[in-house]
Design a protein around this nucleic acid. Structure first.
Lengths: 243, 243
DNA sequence: CGTAGTGTTGAGTCAAGTCAATGGTTGTGG
DNA sequence: CCACAACCATTGACTTGACTCAACACTACG
């Protein structure tokens, strides 16, 4: 075993190995995928609906999201991506993207040529399985969002949304003592929850007044996660962590 | 090449081969998967949230759907499955199901032991890739539903829903001249679109009065698909057919 | 210090929900 | 074949959660 220099691809290895068993050999193969690092400004797109993606993107730092637009231009945010998340596995076997991928903040991405990733995946089925498992967890989150948007009242819906972010950030080591960064405007929260900006503001104000959340700028503190979970009808089962 | 007797697994072969290139050898392997046929009554479950699925299910005849419930018992239907659709690829690499799978009508299922399917998929990466592609199309449909429920008005939403079903049924050879079976109660349509039964009824009545749809029992006729598509903001791109 | 993006608030409206009753359909068992 | 039960569709009257419109305040940043 020779020593290796740390690489952004370690993030990908960690992500895949967290949910699937990967041999040392598999890990080495992932780590030696060709890639290059780029930095993007907040709001910039990496993929637009209709694009033929040529690279698979790994979010090294910063936040990103996926979205779709209606014919009249209304936006729905479909998912949120935290540092360390791969962004494009959902498109791996589709010719054209059916949604947009956009940065929420300034972000660093590792770009892995789709061809190389696909070739590796096709030659090592454990890696393909690990990727598939990751996309299936992604899909489970889509399903929970559908339930959230379709069947929960605004207050519950927003509480649920906050719980998910808090939980995922904590799992990724990005939250301490219930304090975390949520670099989203209220408009973006509205587009994530199927509500309007004004209504999101009112609900947040009320949650704040009730002491369920504390906000200053883009930092949120949740003093009692269990209480917020109850209000948000949140159960992390759908995130398929551990097990 | 020897002759083969027709089998329910031909449906699976057709489904997978429709979207991915599979060799004759691959097809033969899929066709020779172990399986057994069962018949289920309308409304029966094959999977419940929390279950550890042991079989992968292929819908041979009849209709099925996936759903989740909120803590207070409200239901959201997440997807609809037509004859020929596989039902459980979404759970292939997850230990526990995060949603329910339920029959809409009396239905025939082919049950394929998960182990056998997984073993085949792991030994032939083209097959795993075909399965993955299928689940990714599934996910694309989840995303469109999220947009539909989150950002479109009731009338548009229901029109969109009807267009999707009509389109998919037609693609599967299950609609003629814009006439097709929609074996769903208005309550089920409501749970699919994030609306209430009463409101679904009013919208359907209005669409009917405007001549955009004709209904009798569980049969629907769409005289002008393009017009309904326009009202429903429907574009079949997200179904990733052909290409 | 101006400009653009956000956040906050009030007043008024409306799409969709709630509640409740009626009638129609389907299926089943006697 | 009828009668009952269970489910489903339809409608009216009323309510409300969320939206719209329109100000105004705050913050960040060149």
């Amino acid at each position: 075993m020779h020593s290796r220099s740390p690489s952004p691809l370690d993030l990908l290895v960690r992500k895949l190995a967290a949910n699937s068993a990967l041999s040392h050999e598999d890990r080495d193969h992932v780590r030696s995928l060709p890639h290059r690092l780029i930095t993007l400004a907040a709001h910039s797109y990496t993929t637009r609906e209709g694009d033929r993606p040529s690279h698979c993107e790994l979010l090294v730092s910063g936040f990103a999201f996926r979205s779709k637009l209606t014919g009249t231009g209304l936006r729905q945010i479909l998912s949120l991506h935290l540092p360390g998340d791969p962004l494009d596995f959902q498109n791996l076997f589709l010719e054209r993207s059916d949604h947009n991928v956009q940065m929420l903040t300034r972000a660093q991405l590792a770009l892995i040529p789709m061809k190389a990733l696909k070739a590796l995946a096709m030659s090592r089925s454990t890696i393909l399985a690990a990727i598939m498992r990751h996309t299936q967890i992604d899909s489970s989150i889509f399903r929970e969002w559908t339930l959230n948007i379709g069947r929960r009242a605004a207050r519950t819906r927003i509480a649920h949304f906050l719980c998910e972010i808090a939980y995922r950030l904590k799992a990724g080591g990005l939250a301490r003592n219930g304090v975390f960064d949520l670099p989203m405007s209220q408009e973006q929260i509205a587009d994530s929850t199927g509500l309007t900006t004004v209504h999101v503001n009112r609900v947040l104000m009320r949650l704040h007044a009730e002491g369920l959340i504390h906000r200053s700028r883009r930092t949120v503190r949740v003093p009692d996660f269990d209480k917020l979970s109850e209000i948000g009808d949140f159960n992390p089962r759908y995130l398929h962590q551990g097990s």
